[in-house]
Design a protein around this nucleic acid. Structure first.
Ligand SMILES: [Zn+2]
Ligand SMILES: [Zn+2]
Ligand SMILES: [Zn+2]
Ligand SMILES: [Zn+2]
Lengths: 150, 150
DNA sequence: GGAGGAAATGCGATGTTATAACATGGCCGC
DNA sequence: GCGGCCATGTTATAACATCGCATTTCCTCC
């Protein structure tokens, strides 16, 4: 987990370096989208992202943001929450194991959680049916602490 | 798990009875939609369902199928796979615990799996962060045996 | 049997999310 | 300069889902 003390620029620079390592390039658009994702810790919808990015790029269109998102996801810098049509920045470094995404149906917030115990029992269970885990995203609907209180 | 030997009519009749128990009614439209879901063991998309149901009800429109799906999901007779915009009939009776949905990204097939070990470690993990499990659906992307072989 | 009300359906329009298809522009090795 | 490659711009459209309101159906109570 990246400490909160790291400021946005540092996070982005690190992302840029990790892309470069893999021969990919974090271009200006992609960097901007990643920055916006980081400013939305609970996740953001593609068209909200589009609206935001038009503040700096008036001509942005849906493909602009979907292409950037696809790239970021491919690079492991962001995740897609299918259930909610929501996108979130990855808050971990390189994933050694899949993350759990706790999606709160009340506030639409997303929490990313790494948990070795759950993941290992998951592997065992899947292996028994001949399946092989494919994506780093396991989506779970769960009421978050704030909404549980209310 | 409902044995395969049960034919469609029996499954539907049982569903109808269980709705009635709860004071809900499995109307003709809902029953037809449920039947179509059962004929698509790997899941089906809403608009494919719409096309199918127009064979018997020429005037069906998107709300027709979405309303039926909402009802079936509410009654625990079907599940929605958010990641794929896919709907599947529930292949279990009343759920005592959440199911795992293994979604194969190659063939778009969905397998429903109940696994106590995974679910209990999930509960423990969520409780530690103050979350409370909310839905009976945990979506996991996993290559299915057939696609793994190919 | 008839009035009233709740639930379900019909219907058209609209909103939301995502991709297709094709053109353009910059960069690099040749 | 030329050709290949990647990123981007641009327009249109596909795919998925919901709203709002009129009408019908079904049940209940009188
Ligand atoms: Zn992550
Ligand atoms: Zn919440
Ligand atoms: Zn089920
Ligand atoms: Zn498959």
């Amino acid at each position: 987990m990246i400490p909160d003390s790291c400021d946005e620029t540092a996070v982005l620079d690190r992302a840029e370096a990790s892309c470069r390592q893999r021969g990919a390039s974090l271009t200006a658009i992609r960097r901007e989208v990643l920055a916006l994702l980081h400013r939305a810790p609970k996740g953001i919808k593609a068209y909200d992202l589009l609206e935001q990015i038009r503040h700096t790029r008036g001509n942005a269109s849906p493909p602009t943001v979907y292409r950037a998102l696809d790239f970021l996801i491919e690079q492991g810098l962001a995740h897609r929450i299918g259930r909610m049509n929501l996108f979130v920045a990855c808050r971990h470094g390189k994933h050694s194991a899949p993350s759990l995404f706790l999606v709160c149906p009340k506030c639409n917030g997303v929490t990313e959680l790494e948990d070795a115990a759950v993941v290992s029992s998951l592997y065992a269970s899947l292996a028994a049916t001949g399946h092989r885990l494919d994506s780093p995203e396991v989506e779970i609907s769960a009421i978050c602490p704030q909404c549980a209180a209310a």
